[in-house]
Amino acid sequence: MDALIHAMVGLHIVGIACLLGGFLTQMKAMGRGQARMTPAMLHGALAMLVTGVALVGLHRSQGHTVDTFKIGLKLALLVVVLGLVYVKRDEERVEAAAFGTVGALTTANVFIAVLWV
């Protein structure tokens, strides 16, 4: 079971990398008003959602306690990010506020995961 949990954590990190990497590579374009939501950002957000839910289920199935407030907050942030990326995925240019929100909420999600013990 531990190997499965570690595999899910690895895939969760890959999802974060896709989402945050897609944002970071377009920060210059965001400044010019030419940023767009890439397919990698959408797939990364979906991977985060699926693997995050799987991780909670795997931990609960082993009898571990899960901080439901922390997980709920992370889920809420991810749902907003996923909604923004999904709705704006076909637009050639995304306004800087929406694009910046995706980056800020994704970064906040990472810091919540790492710093909230």
Results as ranks from 00 to 15, higher is better:
Leu4Cys: 07
Gly31Tyr: 06
Arg89Ala: 10
His43Trp: 10
Val14Ile: 15
Leu58Thr: 04
Ala17Tyr: 04
Lys28Asp: 12
Ser61Phe: 12
His12Ile: 01
Thr68Phe: 13
Ala96Gln: 12
Ala35Cys: 07
Ala54Glu: 04
Ala113Ile: 13
Gly44Asp: 02
Asp67Leu: 04
Ile112Leu: 13
Arg89Val: 11
Gly15Arg: 01
Ile112Val: 13
Val56Asn: 03
Val117Asn: 09
Ala17Thr: 14
Gly33Asn: 05
Val50Glu: 05
Ile13His: 03
Pro39Ile: 00
His12Lys: 09
Thr25Glu: 08
Asp90Asn: 15
Met30Arg: 04
Ala54Cys: 12
Gln62Glu: 14
Phe69Lys: 02
Leu24Glu: 10
Gly63Asn: 11
Cys18Arg: 00
Asp2Arg: 07
Leu78His: 02
Phe69Ile: 02
Asp2Ser: 11
Thr25Phe: 09
Leu19Ser: 04
Val9Leu: 09
Ala7Thr: 10
Ala35Gln: 04
His43Pro: 00
Phe99Asp: 01
Met1Ser: 11
Phe23Met: 03
Leu115Phe: 13
Val56Tyr: 08
Gly83Tyr: 14
Val80His: 13
Ile5Asn: 08
Val53Asn: 05
Gly83Glu: 08
Leu58Val: 04
Arg93Gly: 06
Glu92Pro: 05
Met8Leu: 13
Leu115Gly: 13
Ala108Asp: 03
Leu55Pro: 02
Leu115Asp: 05
Asp67Arg: 07
Gly100Ser: 10
Gly33Met: 02
Val14Gln: 03
Val9Trp: 03
